[in-house]
Simulated assay, not measured.
Amino acid sequence: MTRLSLLGLYVVFAVIATIANLLTQRIVLFMNDGAAGFTVAVFMGTLIGLMIKYFLDKRWIFRDLTAGTAANGKKFALYSAMGIFTTAIFWITETAFWLQWRTDMMRELGAVIGLMIGYTVKYQLDRRFVFTNSAFVKPV
């Protein structure tokens, strides 16, 4: 797979995870649009997006063949840990847009910008620290 096709696939997967994240947030906010609802929405959206992105990245981006619950659990935990910093970028950006404009459109724009920055950083972290046994992705 060329770098360009890898980048394209990564972007498509980021878009899929972002849509799942924002859709989950809308569902939660539909049920509770207060401050507590916002917190739950951001958390649940992040969790759903993270799980989707992990399985897509593992299989298609990094071609990781790790099998078994224990090995995959450990890898998912490491993948999630790499996402802590990048999730902070996303949450801070989304929250800043929400606090500034207080509209769903601007909150979602902030989310998209934060996720774009976060996914760029996350790819580098995952490549170096999570999917190190992948023959497809060579460490830098």
Rank of each mutant, 00 (worst) to 15 (best):
L47P: 02
F38R: 12
L56N: 00
F43C: 07
Q25N: 10
R102F: 13
Y79W: 06
T2R: 08
A20T: 07
I89P: 06
I27L: 13
G49F: 00
A88I: 12
I16C: 07
A67Y: 03
D57W: 01
A67G: 03
T18N: 09
V12I: 11
L29I: 11
V28R: 15
V28Q: 09
F90W: 04
A20F: 11
F30S: 15
M1D: 09
G37F: 05
L115Y: 13
V40D: 01
G37R: 03
L109S: 08
M116I: 12
V112C: 15
F30T: 14
V42D: 01
I117R: 08
V112E: 08
M51P: 00
N21G: 09
R107S: 12
L4G: 10
A20G: 09
G34M: 04
S80T: 14
L23Y: 07
G118Q: 09
D33W: 02
G8H: 09
G8L: 08
F131Q: 05
V12D: 01
R102N: 11
E94L: 15
M44D: 06
T86W: 02
F13P: 01
T95H: 12
R128C: 10
T87F: 13
F76I: 11
T93A: 12
L29W: 05
I113H: 08
T39M: 02
A36R: 01
G114D: 13
A14G: 15
R102A: 14
K122V: 09
G118E: 03
V11I: 15
L65D: 01
R26F: 14
A70F: 03
L47T: 07
A135I: 02
E108L: 10
E108Y: 14
M1W: 05
N72V: 07
I48D: 05
K53M: 05
W101H: 13
S134Q: 00
F76Q: 04
M116D: 01
G110I: 11
L23N: 13
M1P: 01
F55P: 10
M51V: 11
F136R: 04
A111R: 15
L29C: 09
V40N: 01
L78S: 13
Y54P: 05
R63L: 13
M31V: 10
G34K: 10
I84A: 15
E94K: 15
D33E: 10
Y119D: 00
K58T: 04
I113C: 14
K74Q: 04
Y123D: 03
Q124R: 08
G45K: 00
A135N: 10
A71D: 12
T132N: 05
L109N: 07
F129L: 10
R102D: 10
G73S: 08
T103S: 11
